[in-house]
Simulated assay, not measured.
Amino acid sequence: MHETVLELLQRNAAHAETFRTRFDDVQDGQHPEAVTVCCSDSRVLQDHLWGNDDPGHVFTCSNIGNRVVQRTEAGEVVSGDVLYPIRHTGTETVVVVGHTGCGAVTATYDEVTDGLDEPAGITHCIDVLKTRLEAGVEALPDGLSRDEAVNHLVEYNVDRQVEFLLESDDVPDSVTVVGVVYDFQDVYGGERGEVHVVNVDGETSVDALAAAHPDLGPRVQRLWAY
């Protein structure tokens, strides 16, 4: 067996030893308090970033670019991965998690500015992002480096995903939708690995968010007030 698989199995054995009693209350069903939509980047450890060790607490979805949009024959709809816990497990909080240095956003930026040649599967994902990020690329402030432009667009992408959820008839008005950015590149000036709130139910003004949610304190932060 390949060494990597053996190592994964060894780590799983340690996991099973630690978690064997933690499934008692969730073996027959789940009622997660939040559904998170994260980028599938290997540097974004979905449960760890929340300090979550409780099975059944967070319903985690991931894909490149933390997309909530799924293309179907009927048009664009909220991804079933995100919609399932909203419809079937009583979950009323959605958190869209972007991250600094996102490769999918970088690829979309490069596609918009220079064009890319990628396999069809990657092209499909980038195209879903591209339709939402093109306007953001055009609106970027002057003088940004490529890395700075990407991190501005990370916020812009989170905003567009939140917007799509809020506008969908499939998502009840009772659901709270929060957009955040996970920073491990010292972009926001806090600790590496901190989550920064950039959007709550479509509100993106830092001042308005801070006033409406004083308990969030310094976690309300944005790079780009466009």
Rank of each mutant, 00 (worst) to 15 (best):
L144H: 15
Y109T: 10
G189F: 00
G179W: 11
L129F: 00
T131Y: 01
P119C: 08
G179V: 04
P119N: 11
V206H: 00
L153K: 02
V128M: 14
E203T: 14
G98R: 06
P172S: 03
D159E: 07
V178D: 10
K130P: 02
E163H: 11
V198I: 15
T113E: 05
T131H: 08
E203N: 04
S168T: 12
T204C: 06
D215M: 06
V112M: 07
P141M: 13
G190Y: 14
C102I: 05
A149H: 02
F164I: 13
V150W: 03
S174K: 15
D169G: 14
F164K: 09
E191M: 06
V220E: 01
A135K: 07
N199P: 02
D173M: 01
V187Q: 12
R160L: 02
E148D: 15
V128L: 15
V154E: 07
T100Y: 00
T123R: 13
E203L: 00
D110C: 03
Y109L: 15
L116F: 01
T204E: 01
V137T: 03
V105I: 05
D127E: 14
T123L: 11
Q221V: 10
V105L: 12
V154L: 08
D207N: 02
E111T: 14
A149L: 08
D201F: 09
D170E: 15
G179S: 14
G190M: 07
F164H: 13
E138D: 15
Y182T: 04
A208H: 08
Y109F: 06
A135N: 05
D169H: 10
V198E: 00
V97W: 09
L165A: 06
G190K: 03
E138Q: 14
H124F: 13
A139S: 02
E134L: 05
V178Y: 01
A135R: 14
N151K: 09
D169Y: 00
V200L: 05
T176D: 14
A104D: 13
H124L: 13
A107Y: 06
E138F: 07
L165M: 09
G115R: 08
E191H: 11
F184H: 13
P214Q: 00
E167N: 13
T113G: 10
V105Y: 00
V150R: 08
G202S: 07
D201N: 11
D114W: 09
R132K: 13
E194L: 04
Y109R: 09
H124G: 15
E118T: 15
L165W: 12
A104L: 08
T100I: 10
D117L: 05
D170L: 15
T100D: 01
C125T: 13
E138G: 09
D147Q: 11
E148P: 04
E111W: 07
V154C: 03
D117H: 11
T100Q: 13
V200S: 04
D183H: 02
P218D: 09
E191R: 08
E155G: 03
Q221H: 14
D215N: 09
Y109G: 05
A212P: 01
D127M: 10
G136N: 05
D170C: 12
N151A: 11
S174G: 13
V175S: 05
V162Y: 11
L129A: 06
E167F: 06
D147K: 11
A135C: 04
L144R: 09
N199F: 00
L140Q: 09
V197L: 02
T123M: 13
E194H: 03
L153C: 10
G121E: 15
